[in-house]
Each structure stands twice: as structure tokens, then as C-alpha cells.
Nucleic acid binder design. Structure first.
Lengths: 182, 182
DNA sequence: ATCTTATATAGGATTTATCATATATAAGAT
DNA sequence: ATCTTATATATGATAAATCCTATATAAGAT
């Protein structure tokens, strides 16, 4: 499962609690290509420990509830290294909005336009959030940019170019539908 | 659930068996934005009947096993009409390959390039299959093009432009990684 | 005082999807 | 004769993801 390996990869950089993984890892760092539910993270951590790929130590806190900090084990690191070079099949496409558009011949132009406009708004927002992240990453012109930074920027650019393509496509759709005779 | 509505939409054009839905519907017609497992289709058909959105009639065949042909009911059509104009949130992004790239700083350039090349091959194949479909759709210049045909072409163009963007991005990644000092 | 937000972990229930397998008929190939 | 492919439906088991709820501490706001 990819989520297991995403967690292993995050943990291998720095040990983390479930809460850290959710708030720092999935909601911030890798949000542009993966997201995970809190419940799923805790359950996956249990599974990683069962498999011997991670272990945890309780960290007593006084200003907050105690934390269970998880670290990757040597066998976990081995598994991660194996997985990192394993071919990943393309994820299956499932786009609810395209069902609507494909089967939308019976809808009015106005209904189609509403659907398209709200998709456009949402994709523009996503694009915008990616652009905000991009501003915080070291630029490729930066002489101190690390190998990891370069790869981080490349993954972000994947999201940026996908979203840009979708925004352009949606704008085109809107023009086409506007000129459609009902 | 979107699968339920994809099936309702396919059925509302023409009554279909589970087998038809799989082979004609999901594997051919809408493959560029939805796919469904055979087992899932039959189970979803059961659910649609339970909900009163579809019904089936047995079609006795002599050259093949008998078929159960499903049709949309009036209440199913109502449900479909309602759903077709309901906002669909953007699908969550989950890209296993981007986990690898993002956390791939410890890999050799050669390993990174292998990953990128196999992704590129797969996306080019997908792009190619979309282009094959495109050739069979009526062109926008065709004066006899229907409203449905136009929408079909638009959904296909979504896939085409997404795949083109990914192919370009992967080519760029390959150039960047080639020039990366290990 | 009470409410909300942040910090922190976890289980129950359900949904959605996949994989494997079973069953059965008929056509066509070796 | 036997094997494979196409046609056709269905169930068991499991995986992956989401939603809801419970529990608990502490800081800050109204």
C-alpha cells in the first residue's frame, strides 16, 4: 500500500507522531499528491509496527497530551528502499464531474455552465494554493538548492502543470458551451 | 456514489446487462474518466434495484447464457437528473509515483531516470489510446455533430490535455535529473 | 463561567474498490 | 478430443478510505 510507504518515507526523514504526520506531513508537505484521513494514519501506524517496519516511544508532555513518536526500523528502511524503485502503475482515473459532462446533453446550457464554472473556481483555488507553496520552495536558480529540494519542486510542478491544463480546458469548455445551440 | 450514477446514465441511454456495462460502457465508452470492476458492477446493479432506480428483465438466449437486462426506472431517472447538476468536489489526489519522486533524493540518477522513463512510457500509451478514440468521434467541423457528441469530445479533450501536460512534465523531469550531480 | 481551538490518540461503522474464484454455455482453434 | 476465448452472472474475502464519535489536556477568547 502506498500510504504505508508515504508514512515510512516521512518517518525516515524525522520521527513523527500520528498527529505530526497528519498536520505537518499530509496536510502540508505532500498535500499536492497525497492526502490521508487521521483515522487511517493511526491505523496504518499500528500496521507498520505489527510488520516491524516502525516502532514507537511514548513522549511525556506536560503542556499537552502525551505523544507516541514513531521511528522507522532497519527493516522498515529496507522495505522503503525496495519500494522506492518499484514501478507504480498509473492510478485509475475516476472523475465524477466528467460523468456529468459526458452525459449532460439533456441539461440546459445554463446548467452546464454552472457545473463548469464551479469546477473552474475549485481548480483555480487549487492552482493558487500550489503557487503559494511554490513561493516557499528554494528556486532552481538558488545555488544552495539540494537534491531533495529539486525533487520537491518537480513534484509540485506536476501539480501546477496539471491544474493549469485543467483550468485552460475548463475555460475552453465554457466558451464551447456558451456557443452551443440548445 | 458516482458509480451508481454512471451506471444510471449509461442505462438511461439504452438498457444494458452487467456484461454490456462492463465491456461496452466502462471498458470502451467512458474508460478515459471512469473504470469499474466487474464484481462491483453486478453488486451496484443489485443496489440500484433495491433502491428502485433500476429494474431487470431476463432475456433468454440460445447461443449464449441468459442475460439480465437492466433499465432505469422513472425514480432512477429523477435521481439521475438531480445528480447531474449537483456540484462534485474535486477528486482527492493520490499519486504513488510522486511519493517516489518526492522522497527519491537517496536514489541514484539512474534509478530516478528508470522511474521517470517507465511513467513516461505509460502516459504516452494512455495518450495514444485517447488519440485513437478521438479519431472515431465526429470532428467539431462536422455539421451533423450532436450536442452529446460535442460533450463527449470535450471529456476526451480533458484526458488528452492532462496526459499531454504529464508527458511534457515527465520529459522535463528527465532532462533535469540527467543534469543532476549525484 | 463557557465556548472554541489546538494538541493528541483511537475505535465503530460503513463505503468503495479489488482480487480470486465458481458456475455455465457455445464457438473456434489445435 | 481438448484447450482457449467469448459470453454471462455471482459470491467470498480483503483492502483502502471516510465519517462519526469518544476521550483527554491546555490555552485563549467572549
Amino acid at each position: 500500500m502506498s500510504l504505508q510507504h508515504a508514512i515510512l518515507a516521512l518517518m525516515s526523514e524525522v520521527p513523527m507522531s500520528g498527529y505530526d504526520l497528519k498536520t505537518i506531513g499530509f496536510d502540508r508537505k505532500v498535500n499536492h499528491f497525497w492526502s490521508a484521513d487521521q483515522a487511517q494514519i493511526y491505523r496504518t501506524l499500528d500496521k507498520l509496527v505489527e510488520e516491524g517496519w516502525a516502532d514507537s516511544q511514548l513522549e511525556i508532555q506536560h503542556d499537552h497530551p502525551n505523544r507516541k513518536v514513531y521511528s522507522i526500523t532497519p527493516s522498515g528502511q529496507e522495505e522503503l528502499n525496495r519500494w522506492l524503485i518499484e514501478f507504480q502503475p498509473l492510478p485509475v482515473k475516476r472523475e465524477p464531474f466528467l460523468i456529468q459532462l459526458f452525459f449532460g446533453a439533456g441539461l440546459s446550457n445554463q446548467n452546464l455552465l454552472s457545473l463548469l464554472e464551479s469546477q473552474l473556481t475549485n481548480h483555480q483555488q487549487r492552482l493558487n494554493s500550489y503557487e503559494q507553496v511554490s513561493l516557499k520552495l528554494p528556486g532552481v536558480d538558488n545555488p544552495a538548492i539540494s537534491r531533495a529540494d529539486i525533487l520537491h519542486r518537480l513534484t509540485l510542478e506536476c501539480g501546477l502543470s496539471s491544474e493549469k491544463a485543467l483550468v485552460e480546458w475548463l475555460k475552453k469548455c465554457i466558451e464551447v458551451v456558451k456557443n452551443l445551440k440548445e
